[in-house]
Design a protein around this nucleic acid. Structure first.
Lengths: 125, 125
DNA sequence: CACCTGTATTGATGAGCGTCAACATAGACA
DNA sequence: TGTCTATGTTGACGCTCATCAATACAGGTG
């Protein structure tokens, strides 16, 4: 029944140890430092163009995509490059140049961490 | 083992039918409209002060909190009010006045929907 | 080498946002 | 009614950001 597990592609060990910054939003009030860190990630996804770019990379086969595959989002090429840089700085994407093209891929642990932020705190039992 | 289910507080029916806007980010590239909708929610959580306010409400007992309980986040009272309004406009919080105080509570279905955005697409099986 | 394509950087511009002081509004109570 | 507390609104200021044109850089091909 539960077919919406968080990032099953991670190996079992990692899936239990992904919290790099913060507890679930519902567990206790965030400290200023936790909020600063987590807000940076949410902010990176808070722009429609960046969200489309991120989704395009995340859903592309192999979990990675060339810029040329995803740059059709209605803005100029420099703007695409700028947003991809922002996503990299937020730790959501990594990039690698292979010959002529640059490939971006999602950082799976960060995606899992953000997913955990939005869960109800695990029942203590 | 899986103690990090998404919003177990929702009744079973709702937990299977929460997608108000978009599929998981990893399922397929977002359309412009989907990105616009989802980005609005992420953007609302993309500010440290708003994230602290939201976390304070979400983690408060009963799932709701008076403004007076959560307004100690280092900014002025009008700024707190402004951010709470933003969170309301994004559909993440609702408010209700009871006598002297105004109580905010989290909108659980939206939180669940955002959690689903950050999951890997369910295995088709 | 020159030339072409793909991607990143620079600099500028306009819009949006976070913040506050001042003021307004709502409810409780005397 | 008047006064006090809690919360929301207004208007302004400074800063950040999304965007683009122009340019630079990287790598392939001839």
């Amino acid at each position: 029944m539960s077919n919406t597990r968080v990032l099953p592609l991670l190996d079992a060990a990692a899936s239990e140890e992904v919290a790099p910054c913060c507890p679930p939003l519902t567990e206790r009030p965030f400290t200023a430092e936790e909020a600063e860190t987590a807000a940076r990630m949410f902010k990176a996804l808070g722009d429609p163009v960046r969200l489309r770019l991120f989704s395009a990379v995340a859903s592309h086969e192999g979990g990675e995509a060339c810029v040329c595959d995803i740059s059709d989002v209605g803005v100029s090429q420099p703007t695409v490059s700028h947003h991809l840089k922002k996503l990299k700085e937020a730790g959501l994407l990594t990039s690698e140049r292979r010959g002529t093209w640059v490939y971006y891929r999602v950082e799976p642990t960060v995606l899992a961490a953000m997913g955990k932020l939005l869960t109800i705190a695990p029942v203590a039992a």
